[in-house]
């Protein structure tokens, strides 16, 4: 094997080892890299009131209530467990029932959280508005196109 190919092999091996090392670090710190917990994941965690957490899930259907002009109450669900959220502020445009959302706030007790900020999460589906109307007309609209 010539010198240049020895160098090539050496570089590639170094890259593989480097990549493996970084991946090991990332996967072992997984719980610190996730942006949010789901309500079910939160139950397993040791949390006390006043802790700052981010919770992600869907806004539960028919749970959104407007208390006053800019005060809202709704439930975040992952279809197994719910979490009651109180929020004072402006909701993003995409925020509605059945839609994914991430909230950041302070834990009040096991099932209640005071949100400091609310982010709407949107999925990877893109579709022209006219096609949605067409699908709904023919009852072809699937609920999983959130």
């Amino acid at each position: 094997m010539s010198l240049r190919f020895q160098r090539l092999v050496l570089i590639l091996i170094t890259l593989v080892i480097l990549g493996a090392a970084v991946l090991l670090i990332l996967f072992n710190t997984k719980k610190n890299i996730v942006f949010f917990y789901t309500p079910t994941e939160l139950i397993g965690k040791k949390i006390s009131s006043g802790d700052r957490v981010r919770i992600g899930g869907f806004v539960k259907n028919s749970s959104l209530k407007q208390i006053s002009l800019n005060q809202y109450e709704f439930k975040i669900t992952d279809n197994e467990n719910d979490l009651l959220v109180f929020y004072q502020g402006i909701l993003p445009d995409l925020f509605k029932e059945g839609q994914g959302a991430v909230i950041e706030g302070l834990i009040e007790n096991q099932s209640t959280i005071n949100a400091l900020s609310v982010y709407a999460k949107h999925d990877e589906n893109y579709m022209p508005a006219s096609i949605k109307e067409e699908l709904e007309k023919n009852n072809q609209w699937k609920k999983d196109y959130k």
Binding site: I33, V34, F36, K121, E124
Partner: peptide, 24 residues
């Protein structure tokens, strides 16, 4: 794919057909 993120997953470069309408 590995972590929960606010950013949505890939629409075009995934194994199943792209979840983005052909007109877009």
């Amino acid at each position: 794919d590995w972590w929960n993120t606010l950013h949505q997953p890939a629409s075009v470069s995934k194994l199943s057909s792209p979840s983005i309408d052909i007109s877009m």
